[in-house]
Design a protein around this nucleic acid. Structure first.
Length: 719
DNA sequence: GTTCAACCTCTTTTT
DNA sequence: GAGGTTGAAC
């Protein structure tokens, strides 16, 4: 504790200082993008601990565990290690922590947590049990049914009511889906499982029905801070209210113009109505932007000013200078990817590390093409968002074995692992599970069953051997994972063509499991806060410096010197699902705002002029409507072809008139000609550089400069 | 009756 | 790519 006293006045601006020093009573901090929100929270944690508050009685609720743990690290550096002891995490992990202790009061003495995929499987199982004719009824996919059930809970609506508003085409199925929702709930109760929503629902139930527990928890968490409050749902708001009602030391921090999770039930009204719940709440606005340069801020302010809903603040910066955001028009997705790769390469050569750059997109599949091109261009990257590591088939396979080992009641996992055995399909799996459930299911019972089997069914003994190996009490979590991997590897190789990649994931999983003290903790954590990278750089050299690819949702709260936004075209971003609803379009706009405000120094917004459509083939696209009217005024508009290779110089030259050239072999070549090179394949001429050189875009290799003296006339196909 | 390979479609965002 | 569907092969 030898750190010098923190100089709050020097290190914070006025508004931040005020937020840090309001240590008692309710407070609402409206924090604009890049206004030092995290900094403020960190200093406030340090301040409270400095004042002698027990760190464990500070509850810091954030959107991801990583965010909480980074804040605690920074506070520790500022003050001392006591800050590491702050109770921090997501709403869900905090709910889990509390329910593990008090769950028996509401009928859940123990439980496992199931993810969205598991939920869908439960629904599928129930549909089968009830003998519902999927096709006849035109029942939507299981995952859609789960979405409906979850949305109903998060928006506090009844299923039929929700269907009317959000899924009008499914109102005919209202009764069926309602029945399914009921059965689904029953299943969870009898099998002792909770989904993500349950964690919040059950926590609230506990707080409401057991005032004593509520008081005890309020007493334990004397200082509550909630980050990203604009993205909480009404259920979460009620939980905060219940926990804080005695001491009222509740500070919520957020930005109404960055609310991007309404699809998950988040309600922007939470933040706007906070002063209604705590009428004496201090309202503090952080409006100075420390992140972006003036031209970027001008663009982002313009984007959000055009929103229908008026927001509560206006950002300013004292930073001047900086280059204007660039709006880059590419011919198609291939050219877009190609441009990004080249641009990143040239920035890297200028000495900017990859870790200072990010490519952001609306939907995770938007980056597929780019991922391929980056790999070809030897640019290492990590991808965030989209299908999670923990949700991929091979990881779920592996974990299912451990889940059965821990809890033989888990019928979903039994089903999964049995079907992995050769010669075992759904019918056999059902038979085994039925037999197991005729009595109390246990590993011994399974062993008994396997022993009686003959012929093909002897493969069940493989599983028995696995469970025997896992039963050694001296093994730690990492050993258990290692043994299971060894068992699973032959199945993996057989099942997946891309098994080397997946095998790497498995060893990564093994690494990840090492610090856990119990299998239960490990499995809970995998459901609640799994590793977030879903495509990590493959080797150690690459791990030193890599590019970030991320969905905008996963980029929340982060910043980079250079940001690229791709596929900024109507239908992609804004998403085509949102085009018909004003409300959804408003959220898309906020999403664009979040994306652009991630950039500190340079911002590139890229879109392709043509796209692929499964019905129409090639289609024309238009620039994202959030950029309309801002192109050319607050952004520079360039085409990808011009901009490549520091295109300015070549662009001028092209303008001067070299658009066609007579080669030394005596025939004319012009930009736009399609051409077949004997070694490089099909290409299109982008630009004639001089008498002897042209830049050509090859389908296979991207852009290459070729020597015109070497080409023969017969190779050209004039368009 | 059962498994499994080959085809199809569709792809928003996440704790 | 993952989930669903279909039909051949056991």
């Amino acid at each position: 504790m030898s750190n010098p006293v923190i100089n709050y006045e020097k290190e914070l601006n006025e508004a931040q200082y005020e937020a840090v020093f309001v240590t008692e009573g309710p407070a609402l901090v409206i924090a604009g993008a890049g206004s030092g929100k995290t900094r403020t929270l960190v200093y406030r944690v340090a301040r409270l601990v400095e004042l002698g508050v027990n760190p464990e009685s500070i509850l810091l609720l954030t959107f991801t565990r990583k965010a909480a743990s980074e804040m605690m690290d920074r506070a520790s550096q500022l003050l001392d290690v006591r800050c590491r002891a702050v109770s921090g995490g997501t709403f869900h992990s905090t709910a889990n922590y509390i329910l593990r202790r008090y769950g028996d009061l509401i009928g859940f003495p123990g439980y496992s947590i199931i993810d969205r995929g598991d939920c869908a499987e439960v629904v599928g199982y129930i549909v089968g049990e009830l003998g519902i004719k999927r096709k006849e009824l035109k029942l939507p996919r299981n995952s859609t049914i789960v979405d409906i059930i979850s949305k109903a809970i998060n928006k506090s609506m009844k299923v039929p009511e929700l269907l009317e508003t959000y899924y009008p085409h499914l109102t005919d199925l209202s009764d069926t889906i309602n029945v399914l929702a009921g059965k689904y709930d029953e299943y969870k109760k009898t099998h002792m499982v909770m989904d993500y929503d349950d964690l919040l629902v059950k926590l609230k139930k506990l707080l409401v029905e057991f005032p004593g527990v509520c008081r005890a928890l309020g007493n334990r968490y004397r200082y509550i801070m909630v980050d990203e409050y604009q993205d909480t749902n009404p259920l979460q708001a009620e939980i905060v209210e219940l926990l804080g009602k005695d001491h009222r030391n509740v500070m919520v921090v957020g930005d109404d113009s960055q609310s991007i999770y309404s699809f998950r039930g988040a309600d922007i009204r939470n933040i706007l109505e906070f002063p209604g719940i705590f009428p004496d709440a201090k309202i503090i606005k952080l409006e100075e932007n420390f992140r972006s340069t003036q031209p970027i801020l001008e663009l982002t302010n313009a984007i959000i000013e055009r929103a229908r809903q008026k927001y509560t603040k206006c950002l300013f910066t004292s930073k001047s200078g900086g280059i204007r955001p660039q709006l880059v028009v590419a011919r198609d997705e291939a050219e877009q990817s190609c441009w990004i790769v080249e641009k990143i390469d040239s920035l890297r050569r200028e000495g900017i590390p990859l870790r200072e750059m990010a490519v952001l997109f609306r939907s995770s599949f938007h980056s597929f093409d780019l991922e391929v091109q980056l790999s070809k261009g030897s640019i290492p990257f990590a991808k965030y968002g989209g299908l999670k590591f923990a949700e991929s088939a091979h990881i779920k396979d592996l974990l299912a074995h451990l889940r059965v080992f821990l809890n033989p009641h888990d019928r979903l996992s039994w089903n999964r692992i049995l079907k992995l055995l050769p010669g075992v399909g759904q019918a056999t799996a059902n038979k085994v599970i039925k037999w197991l459930n005729a009595d109390v299911p246990s590993l011994d019972r399974f062993k008994e069953y396997a022993a009686t089997q003959k012929g093909k069914m002897k493969v069940l003994l493989d599983l028995v051997r696995l469970f025997d190996a896992l039963s050694d009490p001296d093994l730690d979590v990492k050993d258990l994972v290692a043994i299971t991997i060894k068992y699973y590897e032959p199945i993996l190789t057989q099942k997946f063509d891309d098994y080397p990649k997946r095998a790497r994931d498995l060893s990564y999983l093994q690494e990840w499991s090492a610090p856990f003290e119990s299998l239960e903790q490990f499995l809970t954590d995998m459901a609640l806060e799994p590793p977030e990278v879903n495509r990590a750089p493959s080797d150690f050299a690459e791990r030193a410096d890599f590019l970030t690819l991320s969905t905008i949702h996963s980029a929340k709260g982060l910043e980079w010197r250079i940001v690229f936004i791709i596929n900024a075209a109507n239908g992609y971003f804004p998403s085509r699902h949102s085009l018909l609803s004003d409300e959804d379009m408003e959220e898309e706009r906020r999403l664009m705002y979040v994306a652009c405000t991630r950039a500190k120094e340079q911002l590139y917004i890229v879109y392709p002029e043509t796209g692929r459509d499964s019905y129409y083939g090639s289609v024309m696209l238009e620039m994202s409507e959030f950029m309309r009217g801002l192109d050319g005024t607050l952004t520079d508009v360039v085409t990808a072809a011009e901009s490549l290779h520091g295109g300015g110089r070549q662009f001028r030259r092209a303008k001067k008139g070299i658009s066609s050239v007579k080669t030394s072999r005596g025939f004319n070549i012009k930009a736009g000609d399609v051409f077949r090179h004997p070694d490089l394949g099909m290409g299109v001429v982008l630009e004639i550089m001089d008498r002897n050189r042209a830049r050509v875009y090859f389908k296979k290799l991207g852009i290459r400069v070729i020597d015109l003296r070497t080409v023969k006339e017969g190779q050209w196909v004039v368009r």
